[in-house]
Design a protein around this nucleic acid. Structure first.
Ligand SMILES: [Mn+2]
Ligand SMILES: [Mn+2]
Ligand SMILES: [Zn+2]
Ligand SMILES: [Zn+2]
Lengths: 130, 130
DNA sequence: ATATCAGTTTAGAATGATTCTAAAGTGTTG
DNA sequence: CAACACTTTAGAATCATTCTAAACTGATAT
């Protein structure tokens, strides 16, 4: 709770009631993948009613401060990932199945990076089923 | 032109004026990545005014028949890819930069596939810049 | 050829995730 | 406690995409 406040303060984010509730849920020690909608539902279950606007604002604030990663796996919703280590994913859109691949993956055989660009991140998505 | 009609017919798609225009552009021999919007703009330049609804319908029809691949790289638009071979991408959202990696890429160190699932496709996206 | 009908196109409405607006509320600092 | 910047929120707006339902057209049978 105080560590949560510290976390927020150290990112120049005021520890408001809403941010504390959201951060406490997101950073409880268990890695999670959430969408704005799923987070809202999850908090509602816990009787924490926070407006969707605030949920979007907060997810973006956390993302901007590197507390979350952003994943675009399907076109219609953005996932935020509390696991900020470099890692990859198993994903099935059909089954709404999304889990981390934390093992070290090696991508071999990449051609050279296009002129004047540099690699920001290599993302591997293992699509399951179909 | 007749090969285009054949292509359509062989996929149980009637060779309508619109589909012929779209297929002729997409399957002209040069691999392309298009969005509904970019395709519409491109055809408009060529004085082919086709409604967006038809463009969406057609892209999906082609996709459903395996004539196109679908890429979800950013949350706000879907790309369709005329290169239907297994391949990967360099991508920069900022620069709207998207090109194929046709070289054989090897992904090593994958953990075992989750129970009762099977791998449909492994997608590697090399994000550039940032 | 012509009629017939399923398949197709289209304008415009609807959808739904996300962003924006601007007004009310709150944490921080002095 | 006052003052103010930062935050929250309801509701409107945005925008890619999908849907609806009416008009149109390619294919097939006569
Ligand atoms: Mn959408
Ligand atoms: Mn959108
Ligand atoms: Zn993850
Ligand atoms: Zn491609």
């Amino acid at each position: 709770m105080n560590d949560i406040k510290q976390l927020l303060r150290s990112n120049a984010l005021r520890p408001t009631k809403q941010r504390i509730v959201i951060a406490s849920y997101l950073f409880d020690g268990n890695d999670k993948h959430v969408t704005a909608e799923s987070l809202s539902t999850e908090l509602a279950k816990r009787k924490h009613l926070i407006s969707l606007a605030t949920i979007y604002n907060t997810l973006h604030d956390f993302y901007e401060n590197g507390l979350l990663k952003k994943l675009t796996l399907s076109a219609d919703r953005v996932y935020f990932d509390t696991n900020t280590d470099d890692h990859h994913h198993f994903y099935s859109e059909k089954d709404q199945f999304l889990i981390d691949i934390n093992k070290n993956i090696k991508v071999n055989g990449l051609p050279k990076t296009p002129k004047n660009k540099k690699i920001n991140k290599i993302e591997v998505i293992v699509h399951l089923d179909k």
